[in-house]
Design a protein around this nucleic acid. Structure first.
Lengths: 338, 338
DNA sequence: GGTTGGCACTCGGAGCAGCGGAGTGCCAGG
DNA sequence: CCTGGCACTCCGCTGCTCCGAGTGCCAACC
């Protein structure tokens, strides 16, 4: 177990390094933090911390830099989430309140988060599987062509084109629409398959094909990979880390373009509470020198989706965590109002 | 007027520079293109081209590089749009055919375009003002809370929350919904304001307030800045130009994050035919060292929106133009099928 | 007049040496 | 266990030379 002072030294190293972006030496440490001990003592502590793998030196005669393990310890034990200032909170509120629909909410959230943290922001749309059905609409576009529109309590709208095996009359359509809504409106999505299973039986044989097609399209929207959507922003912030550039930034940009990667990233995070994944803790190899701070958000107690930021492992964790948590809270409120 | 051979020299310079990314000298030119003249002659031609402002040298003793004006001449006079290969066209078709809804179409198009051109792709959603109304849906969420859902012939779906001045009954709602659709379904959006202007008059006084609110929300969706949406992708391609990095890439990324900037950029392009804006021809200052190749796409003759790519002025114009045109065509087809 | 080879000149970039300074590890003394 | 002192390491900056690609110009040629 590390002594209290050594932890303090680690904390100081992390803070300084995050601030200056340069390896920090023993002398600078004693000057900027009043550790009440001499540089020589700090050097001994540093040697111990390095021994344990919490810090490392890039070159033999350079200062120390925290390792992933060091950041881990910092986040777990040494960092307090930094609450936002009152003006910041007001700004969030004002900015989000102007949103006109879900796309707008998500879009604004991304921009907001990117601006607050000065990092890349990722916001997931509310998951269908954790929402309830608000309404199902069926429109006839052509004699044998329907459009299915699905609306959730979180404001998400999904649409699908349907080619029917046979023409489907207006009255039958109204009938199907009514019965569908009667069964599933207000219900949670995972329940839907069970609730509609026997619906085709109550239709005439010549309509049953179309009804089945509609239902299978409906069910597909729930399992498909398109079920989960997300939006990212603030990629320009990546350019703030000018050192060894293309090498660092490129794999990150590539990873960010892969929705699948991002979804998996968010999926790995805990459902409740904030998750911080540091450097190599991220499975994707393009993201081994980045950290991901994410948290679930939702209108009620339960999270309907996640949001977070992606940044260099050398990031201001307390501040970032504070911003992420605050934004998630406000987004939850906005969703609840709708 | 420049002689035939000098134009040929300019073409060769552009092609070489685009290929090698390095200033091209007179000797290299004569070797790689069979110009049938000696380096000395080419030097004279180069001096003339430089005099006219088509090329420039980065440093006194370096090769020549095309200027924006040089690229302009190249694109206008010297370049043929390069058609895609048959496999490429098949790939496009296959890739786009799997789309399930409009978001998916746009998303796939962005990825496709980014991959084909190896540049940043921008795709605008079909503009509301150039679409026709397919259906308007009104849902009651709470006694005095409605949701308006607007569906266009291009598959776009817009939603808005509406707070009513007074509770609005189910039958009145059905009535309003029916009348709204009767009036505007199948009509072009710009006609809508005219078509619904007198609608409140036919309702009872106590309902008129809500009807007006609904209508004004409907009309707002048409003028709002959110009317135009777009999606971008392929930003990782920016990292391919490793030289003088952060300086180049950052303003571009920043510009790309500003939807407004991008919309203006696409808006400046011609409605029909392909538009190429080179370097300083772009108003936005972050984009003065990039070129934008854009074209309208649509299900019929008329363009409903635009798509394009953003890349360095040093880009393969024939290839890029070919890819952009081809993708626009296929997207138009897909939209027409829905 | 346009084209060509020759030639002197320019200048950026690679390669190398020197050195200054920040930082370290270790040791002896408090 | 802490501290000051000291020798050592090594990164990175500066200044230097040298090389070569590329140019402009000129005289000769067709």
């Amino acid at each position: 177990m590390l002594s209290e002072r050594r932890l303090e030294v680690l904390r100081a190293i992390v803070q300084d390094y995050v601030g200056t972006e340069e390896p920090v030496g023993s002398k600078a440490l004693t000057e900027r933090h009043n550790l009440q001990v001499s540089p020589a003592t700090v050097r001994n502590d540093m040697a111990a911390l390095e021994e344990e793998g919490y810090i490392a030196q890039p070159h033999t005669s350079a200062g120390r830099v925290p390792t992933d393990k060091g950041y881990r310890l910092f986040v777990d034990k040494l960092a307090d989430v930094k609450p936002l200032t009152a003006p910041e909170r007001r700004a969030i509120q004002n900015f989000l309140d102007g949103a006109v629909d879900l796309d707008d909410v998500v879009g604004r959230t991304v921009r907001l988060l990117a601006q607050l943290t000065r990092q890349v922001a990722v916001v997931q749309y509310p998951s269908l599987s954790r929402s309830t059905v608000r309404h199902v609409e069926l429109l006839s576009l052509a004699p044998a062509r329907l459009m299915l529109v699905l609306i959730t309590d979180t404001g998400r709208v999904e649409q699908r084109m349907i080619d029917c095996p046979a023409p489907f009359g207006e009255t039958s359509l109204a009938d199907l629409r009514a019965r569908l809504n009667a069964r599933i409106a207000g219900e949670r999505f995972p329940e839907v398959p069970r609730l509609v299973a026997d619906l085709p039986d109550s239709f005439d044989a010549d309509e049953r094909g179309t009804v089945s097609t509609v239902l299978s399209t409906l069910l597909e929207t729930l399992v498909e990979e398109t079920e989960e959507r997300l939006m990212i922003g603030g990629t320009a912030n990546l350019t703030r880390f000018a050192q060894d550039f293309p090498l660092t930034i490129r794999p990150v940009l590539e990873a960010l373009e892969e929705q699948v990667v991002l979804l998996r990233l968010l999926g790995e995070a805990k459902d409740s509470g904030m998750t911080v994944r540091i450097g190599h803790e991220n499975a994707h190899e393009g993201l081994t020198s980045t950290s991901v701070v994410s948290v679930g958000y939702g209108s009620g107690d339960e999270a309907v989706a996640k949001l977070g930021v992606v940044g260099p492992t050398r990031m201001d964790y307390p501040g970032t965590m504070g911003a992420v948590r605050a934004v998630a809270r406000y987004v939850g409120q906005i969703l609840a109002e709708n």
